[in-house]
Write a protein that binds this DNA or RNA. Structure first.
Lengths: 385, 385
DNA sequence: ATCACTTACGAAGGAGCACTTCATTATTAG
DNA sequence: CTAATAATGAAGTGCTCCTTCGTAAGTGAT
């Protein structure tokens, strides 16, 4: 039994305001008549709603569109620029950031390289630089940032403390949420990077429209993100998706098949070895193909476990190795066909490197929508908070 | 972006009617003042709402509670008896049914034994008998049945056709939903039995209050049910939870460790073998304990996969073998401690044999609530439909 | 039995929101 | 310049909820 709050007349207005905002956010600038038709309200009522929203700063009039019959209608749009969001992807080698408006439209992106072994301060400074870079590029003031969503590798507590991170040694035990809240005067959300990537693929990428999605991060390290019923699944202790920890999933050592392939020339940097093998496999090298086969054999076990447990609509292959999805997808599909009860769609990521930042943006948008634009959350505040 | 329907004044009333109903269903009979306080509405408004609901047949006045100061207040209750629900559990050896009111309060239960190899007609007749038995016991007319929820073993399509059932050979390929809709003049919902058991445990059993639950059906056959974010997780093709199909989960053959234990006397019925081993293990028989150890070793692999993937709050052990949870839980916990990232609560089912029927009832209640008592679903109809 | 106290009931008056209707206004097409 | 088109603004209506206040129906003390 959810909320027991009964509704006042003002609540009705609030409901209608939110409906108007949703309609405006869904489809570009709209006239009063269009809004009225979409929402089912009468024109005069809609006028009052829009006037109120304009007064609060959530909605703004735009010039009428010319060339129509009759008296030109005034048009209104949602002011997605009343506030801004940043998404940050803190990886081993790079810190990426993106800045968007309240609709998740990306306005600026930056990247700051960091050494994997860099000390904590250096990495935090890179975050600072990445974000200020975005602010400068989009000419946005720090105070106009409403929410920052951060994706990083590692296992997190629900509050944003890092339990464990294989990729970034300095991260271990860090209260990342607390640190970033000291650095930035906005709300800070921390999430696992694979989960954010999954969200991005489900919102704007290869799994757009699907409500149940399994995202596989395949690369030097394995990771997963789950979208269940359209939302990021964290689990009770924010530890969902860690199947790589199970030896029988055969995921932990799977990348070694590619790294340790005989055909990789001595002296190749460890981070390039797998790429070399995958490229050789694409050319048809039999030794490389055999290594890929062994790799996919292992990959398919953990994947089949997730598919059998969750029965997702789509499985998305992302992460570094997904650049070679042409090599990986056919054999993976073949193994899953045999192992699964119902075969899901298996697709390659379409967002690539920007996947996590985009997911972070999407996550922030969703958080904001839950807070502001949901009927249960009280009246709309004045826009500039 | 959900619905774009704006709200009329009548919608406000509808909202408040639903709030009143929710309040009444949440806590026994209430006076107007109590209702007003809980919902935040004024007394006169609440009076009007309650009068309307009384007229529609959803609410009814009950005698005032004596022994209070001041003028005795009129009290109202939700008429949970405006309609009735049946839950059915179609197992290999038994068909169970339960009848409840709209609040899921169980009013009658029946059981009809069936032979596992019984032909289709016989099993359908048993269902018929089980349901009419419930109707007779509770003196309810067939026409007062609103919804029937059915749990059965096997893999289903989203529409309620049976893809595959190991336990009931005659079931294979059957359009069970269609058949039952011919037999009963009410809405029919079909679901996998383990999923319903999971729901029951999450609503009224060992996992009450938890939003993410993994239910393990351990018995001669293995099955699972997942509750994610408080709701039954079916998956895109209603095939979620079938990890037993993955050889590496080691679930499929796990029960064989108990069945084929050396100490089981020759000639024991196959369905009693595992029970014999478990009982011997409880007495401390070393051979039986070793078999249990091997069994739990295997059980823990698939369980760890689910826990690592989903990070549930609670894992519930149900099914036939859960009668021996005192023997199974400690070693299972020990293995999971080692394998899992975050250890969930591991508990034994508290509902036992009635688990699936109760889950069916809960499922029907939830379906009804979604249809009738949710703000987005339009106005409340007249109670006797 | 009576009186004070407590609490609920019911009626009356008021405010807010959305609806319908209609005269007015701004633009395009001929 | 006129007719047609479509949006605007103002006026009047109905519904829902709110507050207020006098009345009714009990309990407990004298």
């Amino acid at each position: 039994m959810a909320d027991l709050r009964g509704g006042d007349l003002s609540r009705l207005r609030q409901l209608n305001s939110l409906t108007a905002i949703r309609a405006l956010r869904g489809a570009g600038p709209l006239t009063l008549s269009a809004l009225a038709e979409r929402t089912g309200l009468s024109r005069p009522s809609m006028k009052e709603v829009v006037d109120e929203l304009t007064g609060l700063g959530w909605v703004e009039e735009v010039p009428p569109s010319p060339g129509t019959m009759g008296r030109p209608a005034r048009r209104y749009r949602f002011r997605a620029d009343s506030g801004y969001l940043v998404g940050v992807d803190i990886g081993g080698h790079n810190v990426r950031a993106a800045l968007s408006d309240l609709d998740g439209e990306i306005l600026a992106e930056t990247r700051q390289p960091v050494l994997p072994g860099a000390p904590l301060d250096e990495r935090l400074a890179a975050i600072e630089r990445a974000v200020s870079g975005c602010l400068a590029l989009s000419r946005t003031a720090l105070d106009d940032l409403w929410t920052m969503a951060v994706g990083t590798t590692g296992v997190l507590t629900p509050e944003g403390r890092i339990t464990y991170s294989a990729a970034i040694p300095a991260w271990r035990g860090l209260d990342l949420g607390g640190k970033l809240r000291e650095m930035f005067p906005c709300e800070v959300l921390i999430e696992n990077d694979s989960r954010l990537a999954a969200l991005a693929e489900a919102r704007r990428g290869a799994a757009r429209g699907a409500r149940d999605v399994v995202f596989l991060h395949v690369g030097r390290r394995m990771g997963t993100g789950l979208i269940i019923d359209g939302r990021v699944h964290r689990g009770f202790g924010a530890a969902a998706g860690e199947i790589v920890m199970l030896p029988q999933s055969r995921w932990f050592d799977a990348p070694e098949h590619l790294n340790a392939c005989e055909i990789v020339p001595k002296g190749t940097a460890p981070e390039d070895a797998a790429g070399y093998t995958l490229a050789a496999a694409r050319r048809g090298d039999p030794v490389a193909l055999a290594a890929v086969d062994r790799y996919v054999d292992d990959l398919a076990v953990g994947t089949a476990a997730m598919v059998l447990i969750l029965d997702p609509e789509v499985v998305v292959l992302g992460g570094g190795f997904s650049r070679s999805s042409d090599v990986l997808l056919p054999p993976l599909r073949e193994r899953l066909e045999r192992a699964c009860m119902r075969m899901p769609e298996v697709r390659a990521s379409t967002l690539g490197e920007e996947c996590v930042v985009m997911g972070a943006i999407d996550y922030a948008v969703e958080h904001l929508d839950d807070q502001l634009f949901t009927p249960d959350t009280g009246p709309l505040p004045l826009s500039p908070r």
